[in-house]
């Protein structure tokens, strides 16, 4: 049986997800019965999150707005084979990212929201590919209930989400929380119309409505609002079927996670 002293020693490794699964479970069992350790753990978590927020918000640490242009010029000089068209496309992505960090105007914010959603969609497609299809994520997935205790209640809520009847056979296969490229997802795996299909929810602002994501991925990806979060449906299916599934899941999922 784990004691308070053990928990304190392992607390930071626990929060960094560096413990073995068995040790993790032992520690979680202790937390369920020990309010003092629970409170200490919450304070440590708050400190980490506070530090991260302070770092990301600090104006002193933000780049100059024109840095994006200069960085692009330097990268272009280092790669003479790049054509003007691809450079123009990338310039907009970089400029929007840095303008957003500097609190730019409405256009920039919309560009960023779109660009950010596309980045998240690529991560969701990657998670689907490396978790649901290949089982080869760098980190082992953890139960949604455990993720709920550590990272936010919506993970635990996803553990009890029941998909509504949809057009086509939908069979639940697996639920867990997993990490791809540093991004954590609540992940529900279905078999839909005979294909492995992922519903992924992550802690980022929701889009206004379900929409297909125009990204270069093997599978079709649709984003959807999931309460205060963003969700994705990813599957090796016809794009229209993926969009329709995202549309069917939007309302029940948003209500469930509210």
């Amino acid at each position: 049986m784990m004691e308070c002293r053990d928990v304190r020693e392992m607390a930071d490794s626990f929060l960094s997800e560096q413990l073995l699964v068995e040790t993790n479970h032992e520690l979680l069992r202790h937390l369920e019965t020990c309010p003092v350790c629970r409170s200490d753990m919450a304070a440590r978590r708050a400190l980490r999150e506070g530090l991260r927020s302070a770092f990301v918000r600090a104006e002193d640490l933000s780049p100059r707005p024109e840095f994006a242009t200069e960085l692009r010029a330097r990268l272009r000089a280092s790669q003479p084979g790049i054509t003007r068209r691809s450079l123009l496309k990338s310039w907009w992505a970089l400029a929007a990212g840095i303008a957003g960090a500097a609190g730019g105007g409405l256009f920039a914010r919309r560009s960023i929201a779109r660009s950010h959603l596309a980045t998240l969609a690529r991560e969701a497609a990657g998670d689907h590919q490396y978790c649901a299809v290949k089982f080869s994520l760098a980190e082992r997935p953890i139960p949604l209930e455990d993720a709920g205790k550590r990272y936010g209640a919506f993970y635990a809520a996803l553990a009890t989400f029941e998909a509504p009847p949809v057009d086509g056979p939908l069979q639940l296969l697996e639920r867990h929380a997993c990490v791809y490229q540093g991004r954590r997802f609540g992940h529900v795996v279905f078999r839909y119309r005979g294909a492995l299909t992922s519903l992924l929810v992550t802690d980022a602002p929701p889009p206004p409505a379900p929409e297909l994501e125009a990204i270069d991925a093997r599978a079709a990806v649709a984003s959807l609002p999931a309460g205060r979060f963003v969700g994705f449906v990813v599957a090796d299916l016809d794009r229209q079927h993926v969009l329709e599934l995202a549309q069917a899941l939007t309302t029940p999922l948003s209500q469930h996670l509210a």
């Binding site: 640490l61 450079l87 970089l94």
Partner: peptide, 22 residues
Amino acid sequence: EPDRRWLAFEAEALPHADRLFR
């Protein structure tokens, strides 16, 4: 090839420029 690599770099790496600068 340079275009393909650049576009992949743009999608994967450039969004991290702000955090990298910080």
